[in-house]
Design a protein around this nucleic acid. Structure first.
Lengths: 370, 370
DNA sequence: TTGTACGCGTTATCAG
DNA sequence: CTGATAACGCGTACAA
């Protein structure tokens, strides 16, 4: 009669029931906070749970309820590549911040985050395998081709992150790249009266890169300036790539632009480094601006003028949206989070003493929700 | 007779079996690569799977096999805190790098990573809940108190990360803090002939901080130098905290040390910033060195001399160890990964031109496996 | 208020 | 080589 302990020593709901002298149904009710339970019964169950250290098996719960309470976060596989050559600093802090935001939100809804990489990695493990492990998916920019989103979204709720624009098959959440770049261009052309700008882009197939480039270029044009897009001035989102790119550009001995606008802060760091090594002063000889506002930006010399994007909120919004869907609601299909111009010293503005206390400084919030 | 599609439209093994005209047992066999299956039967099953887009339900697999193929990565909850005040840049890239390493390893073993925070966050969600969702756990430094490790390790295989030392209840994997600090101290005292050093520490209850401080101090002493540990010179691992700490120290108007050794690179960045703002030159007036070798370290001015720790390998080693345990093996109980001194300019060495191509430069590998 | 019994989707152990 | 069928642990109608 006495129920044996499980082989691995993990107690089940049956052990709890037996110990409390009730049925498993009652245990389940108590654990799930159902009403209509005699207090003394509840107490018996609770202490049995405590004494046994019982924890419900998530697999069984998932199977029974049809909900795993797990949301998958899918990164492009290049992020995880082992190749030591491609150190892939690519928006390094991006992943970190994004995960934090998503984690907070998931936590709030009692969900967990499962980390996944996009590609087929090993014999027999296809991307589609993940459908069986999660209730919903967050797909980062560039993890799957546009046409593959549809089929995936048919299987599980999906949000696309950091994409350039809307997708008809899935919810999209992104930051206002265009607004940020407009504010930046305005600052450079109007305040600093710069006319000849250049754009140092990231990987070309990235929606974020495309959006930033297009918006910056257009804004500069509209204000009467020009924007050089030298084929040499193109990197892979990394600092080292930017160092090389700027090096290539310098070797051309063509007249330099007044400012180099970089598609992210990592590359801005590399650009500043390359310029310094060439004996050029930033911002006196060439100004440099970035995009992201990574924590170290304010500690660079000069402090980096950049566009802040709310990465954490991005992650949180993605999870919130998915949880809403899982609860049967119909959240906004296209969300755009505001960006903010952060003016520091690298654009030519006088660097204000920054004690690392406040946020940064100047600000021009942009963006709206759709 | 015809099997209806599931409510949510997700096909099960029964649908596949029906479509292929076989039993679910056969389908399972095919999918799990069992031998002794007639090729033509296998083909029928495989095409049925393809046509239906069948993906096995992980919950059911987990329940049936008693293995979820999920490893939990537990971060201290402060990492995820929403409090915008505590921007918590704390070893920002640490988490990122660690996760990457773990992800690669998990992927290799066909496991997934579940992200978890340590604290009780909401009504009814206790930390112990995670036992039900994972097969094993990676606990980061400071996520649980020493005495809580035992009970946890009794439930699931556990590895402790970045801890100061061994734990009798769980496997420990860490980096050779001591070796790195010894090499650093040697470089400062012997090469640069410094005598008066200072240590800018992180949070005091952190094993990593304690280990680095103790090793540095000891090494400097042994070489005939002194190490100032001013109560003012203590921060929270963040750049802004370091800025404030160095500010406090400067206001004391006591004679400054020749070098400030920081417990991580983030703080070194803050220290350099604070010194620059006070009109002091690095390294001429005060040298600054760090620990970690985060990507941006080489692009600072001057480039940061620091100790590199193999964070990715740390994550990978943790996962590898757990998978071994889950497979019934008995991996090493205490693993120490080597660290490496990376000499750049902030210690007073002539900064070599760095095109961002190589690794950094000078090196003194340390550490061994136990 | 509580207990019985079935279903959730897979794997695995038997027979055949 | 293949097909029934019993677990796996939990939630929940349905009965009592």
């Amino acid at each position: 009669m006495a129920l044996e302990k499980t082989a691995d020593g993990v107690p089940t709901i049956y052990h709890v029931a037996q110990r409390a002298g009730v049925s498993i149904a009652t245990v389940s009710r108590v654990l799930n906070g159902h009403e209509q339970i005699r207090p003394e019964t509840e107490e018996k169950v609770l202490s049995a749970v405590r004494e046994l250290g019982f924890v419900p098996n998530a697999s069984a719960q998932g199977l029974s309820k049809g909900l795993k309470r797990i949301i998958g976060l899918v990164f492009a596989n290049s992020w995880w590549e082992e190749d030591p050559q491609s150190v892939e600093e690519n928006s390094l802090l991006f992943a970190d911040e994004l995960i934090r935001g998503a984690q907070v939100a998931a936590d709030r809804h009692a969900y967990s985050l499962l980390l996944l990489s996009s590609g087929v990695t090993h014999r027999g493990h296809a991307f589609s395998d993940v459908f069986g492990k999660v209730d919903a998916l967050v797909l980062l920019d560039r993890v799957v081709r546009q046409e593959r989103v549809g089929p995936i979204a048919k299987r599980v709720p999906v949000v696309l992150l950091a994409g350039s624009g809307r997708s008809r098959s899935a919810t999209t959440i992104r930051v206002d790249n265009a607004g940020g770049m407009q504010a930046l261009a305005e600052h450079l052309v109007v305040v600093h009266e710069m006319r000849r700008t250049a754009f140092l882009g990231g990987l070309v197939d990235s929606p974020d890169n495309d959006a930033r480039l297009a918006a910056f270029q257009q804004a500069v044009f509209d204000l009467g300036g020009s924007c050089e897009i030298d084929e040499a001035l193109s990197a892979d989102w990394t600092s080292s790539g930017a160092v090389a790119a700027v090096g290539r550009r310098l070797r051309k001995r063509r007249r330099l632009p007044e400012v180099i606008a970089c598609a992210n802060d990592q590359m801005a760091i590399g650009a500043m480094h390359a310029l310094a090594m060439a004996g050029l002063r930033v911002p006196e000889d060439v100004a440099v601006v970035g995009f992201d506002d990574i924590p170290v930006a304010r500690y660079l010399r000069p402090p980096l003028t950049t566009v802040r994007q709310p990465i954490r909120q991005l992650g949180a919004a993605a999870v919130d949206s998915l949880v809403l869907r899982l609860q049967g609601h119909e959240p906004a299909r296209d969300v755009v989070l505001p960006t903010e111009l952060v003016v520091r010293g690298s654009c030519g503005c006088p660097a204000v003493p920054d004690l690392g206390l406040g946020n940064g400084n100047g600000s021009t919030p942009r963006g709206e929700r759709a």
